[in-house]
């Protein structure tokens, strides 16, 4: 490897790290002229599930339905909808499943509280274990 080649390789790698490829699916023609609205649209799109490829957001997905949903989100924003009104619009047609961040409700409580409950159970178990161990050590000390 010549030093020149090495240097240019490093440069390419550094540039790739500094400016990663844009991974979202938004087509330049979709972008709104109003930067605040566009920012809100991007934000909403990131939280809406693409229903064709279910583990992607509509912001990531190249599916035609995702594109049409992105355009719809932008259209609603231009018409003056708040972010919540846009979410409600989509949820009223596709259900909560379309939200990548499930809402806190009675049916989703276990989803949100579950991890905390398990951590708590583990912590209590750990506490009991250490308490018993120190108790055992104390009794051993007394036996001496």
């Amino acid at each position: 490897m010549t030093p020149a080649f090495f240097r240019s390789s490093c440069l390419v790698i550094a540039l790739l790290i500094l400016f990663p490829f844009n991974t979202n699916a938004v087509d330049p023609s979709e972008i709104l002229r109003n930067p605040t609205l566009e920012k809100r649209a991007r934000h909403i799109s990131k939280d809406l599930r693409c229903l064709v490829c279910q583990n992607q957001s509509i912001d990531d997905s190249d599916a035609p339905l995702a594109r049409d949903l992105r355009l719809l989100v932008r259209e609603r924003l231009i018409q003056g909808d708040t972010d919540n009104e846009v979410f409600d619009y989509v949820v009223s047609r596709y259900g909560d499943f379309v939200l990548l961040r499930p809402p806190v409700k009675a049916v989703t409580a276990i989803l949100w509280l579950g991890p905390a409950i398990f951590v708590l159970i583990g912590f209590i178990g750990l506490l009991r274990y250490f308490r018993r161990q120190t108790a055992d050590e104390n009794s051993e000390d007394q036996n001496k």
Partner: peptide
């Protein structure tokens, strides 16, 4: 533009 499909919550 999927407006009818979205009205009915269609995915495919």
């Amino acid at each position: 533009k999927s407006r009818g499909a979205i009205a009915f919550g269609v995915t495919k």
